[in-house]
Design a protein around this nucleic acid. Structure first.
Lengths: 240, 240
DNA sequence: CGCTGGATTGACTCGGATCAAGTCGAGTGG
DNA sequence: CCACTCGACTTGATCCGAGTCAATCCAGCG
């Protein structure tokens, strides 16, 4: 299997061979990272740009009262904080979920690459816009969807993203997320999430067991979620 | 008073005189827009870049069930969707709240300006990163803060943003937001928001009447909100 | 002066949090 | 190979924050 990061960017915007080469070189020496390791913490000065070549991670914040809010899940091919070095400090942390291979691209090298290879800059920009759209969808979910809708919506999102980057072609997806992680991303309790999952299973819409998601009835799940099939598609269409 | 947009960008990143001139020219002919007008709707192809020279607006989505979620408030100086033209369709709508003056910068002109004036590009980029941080704070609020904390947090955010762009220097702020708008931004009911406002008033932390916000006890409000004074400051520090 | 769209208040209900016990499976060490 | 542990998942009982429904109240305005 190739370099998921480059594949993803190429899907955002066509890349010239020279650009692919530059990206290949920049990500040639990934580091192996264990699960549950912080790549960077809130308050740190932004360091290098992280690229998830393999494995899952998540962005999160810890509140004063100790609770955690997960802001995004990062899957293979995703990259973090392209330009966040422009700001003084990280406003959130990033932690690995599974054992991962993470490329760390030096800021300066990245800036030079963005200057010299406009196609890469554009592809990264598009990827970032898509992520912003995802954040808007999360805000919408938290504010105006019931817990069952939220769960269904998140699963639709994750499944679609995973399919787009070629993680699966079947109605099944290997999802290394504990129920606690999912609950903390949806603003609910692990206990309550568990009950919602049970209900979704009972409806036949989807089954989430230990390590994988099975979408039993896609159209039902989409309907429960009120999932706008276009919300990621639209962006993907640009790509196609 | 000058051009709030240019002032804001200059605070993000120092601008050369030529860059200021280019921005002045680009925003020289704003359009007057009435309240409650959509500037652009979900599903539209992105048009020109909108710049709020004066007046307030908000980004929002309408769900299938008819409810509304507000994604962000735009105040004078804010600009919308810098590069969103890279995507095929808007995933949300933008509507004015007050009578506004809105500059509309042609995509092509904007792209040329960004290419030719890197300082402008950088300033806009920084502004966008700050907005992203705000979105992350919203997700956090919706997921893990009580309704009173959420209200207090939003008021802290709005007050700080307003002060930064020079809308006020006192503990008062002219806030043209109805309770329904605020409720729809915080994922709650107007009825419940009303009760929370009453409680905050009773505590002496803040008073929100028809058209203005009065922060009676800043430190108490910050404490209720669990507001990280740095969350916008950090970014502002870069600026200083 | 009555209309209208917000703001306010009360009574009632319910989704989800909280608290508290289990249960199950994968290691680990004796 | 079994006992022990530890983390994650389940389930039940109870409570409370916030939604819902429904009256007012109030100020601006044609």
């Amino acid at each position: 299997m190739g370099n998921r990061f480059i594949e993803k960017l190429a899907r955002c915007h066509p890349l010239r061979p020279a650009e692919v080469d530059a990206l290949t070189a920049a990500t040639a020496h990934p580091r192996s990272v264990k699960p549950r390791q912080d790549l960077i913490r809130e308050g740190d000065r932004p360091g290098p740009v992280f690229v998830m070549l393999d494995g899952w991670a998540y962005r999160y914040k810890i509140l004063p009262n100790g609770t955690r809010q997960i802001l995004a899940f990062l899957m293979p091919g995703d990259c973090c904080d392209l330009h966040i070095s422009l700001l003084a400090e990280m406003d959130h942390s990033i932690q690995t979920i599974t054992p991962s291979r993470v490329a760390m691209i030096d800021r300066l090298a990245m800036d030079n690459m963005l200057d010299a290879r406009r196609g890469i800059a554009k592809a990264l920009y598009i990827a970032q816009l898509i992520d912003e759209g995802t954040m808007r969808a999360w805000i919408t979910s938290m504010g105006r969807r019931t817990s069952m809708e939220r769960v269904a919506h998140l699963m639709c999102e994750l499944y679609l993203r995973a399919r787009t980057i070629g993680l699966t072609t079947e109605p099944t997806l290997c999802l290394p997320l504990s129920q606690l992680l999912i609950a903390d991303s949806l603003g609910m309790t692990a206990v309550h999430l568990n009950r919602v999952l049970k209900a979704l299973r009972a409806e036949g819409a989807m089954t989430l067991d230990r390590k994988s998601l099975l979408i039993g009835d896609p159209s039902k799940l989409v309907q429960i979620a009120g999932f706008d099939e276009n919300y990621l598609h639209r962006r993907l269409r640009v790509v196609a």
